[in-house]
């Protein structure tokens, strides 16, 4: 019985991590697209990007986001937000760490593949990795923290919706019972 409950919790954790990681990646992509389009840079950026490299980069980022979100949500998941500001702060910190990991690993992967394909010297590769990964880690961390705030806002909205709906359902039942 305990095993069944643990299995259910594990399955819930997997679904939650999958949904949260996919949502954050999709929103980030859309915001990036909007910003690039509004600044007029979209045309130039897309022209220099092939279909296969684009799909590969997106899939790599998705994989990293899914793995990092699984780790970030492992300790209770979004339900931790019910613990008020303490729960939110805890998730924001985990989101920052997960985002930093994604940013660093993403840049490292892209630089490594680019260097292998273009035959870049080892020293310049190490230098780019050292400076770039640290910077990407900070940027990724900030994005990760902000993503948690967005997730928390949506979680709060969902809770309000369920609460109101349940209340209206209960009052309907009560009025039916009176008649």
């Amino acid at each position: 019985m305990a095993e069944t409950a643990a299995g259910r919790a594990g399955e819930r954790g997997r679904v939650e991590a999958w949904v949260v990681s996919s949502f954050n990646l999709v929103v980030l992509s859309l915001v990036g697209l909007l910003a690039a389009h509004a600044s007029g840079a979209l045309e130039g950026e897309l022209a220099g990007f092939g279909t296969l490299p684009g799909v590969a980069v997106f899939a790599y980022l998705w994989l990293l986001t899914a793995a990092a979100s699984r780790w970030a949500l492992a300790d209770g998941g979004l339900a931790g937000l019910r613990n008020g500001l303490r729960g939110l702060w805890r998730l924001v910190l985990r989101g920052f760490a997960a985002g930093a990991l994604i940013g660093g690993a993403f840049l490292l992967g892209v630089v490594l593949v680019g260097a292998v394909l273009n035959g870049a010297p080892l020293l310049s590769l190490a230098l780019i990795a050292l400076i770039g990964v640290a910077a990407a880690g900070v940027v990724g961390g900030v994005i990760g923290g902000l993503s948690v705030l967005l997730d928390a806002g949506c979680y709060w909205a969902a809770g309000r919706l369920v609460g109101r709906w349940t209340e209206s359902g209960a009052s309907d039942d009560a009025s039916h019972a009176e008649y």
């Binding site: 819930r12 949904v19 949502f23 709906w165 359902g169």
Partner: peptide, 20 residues
Amino acid sequence: SFVRTLVVFRLRRGDSTGSG
């Protein structure tokens, strides 16, 4: 859509009666 998904999660966790 994300809010809808979170509603599903909340209902599944037993936040609501059958009105969900």
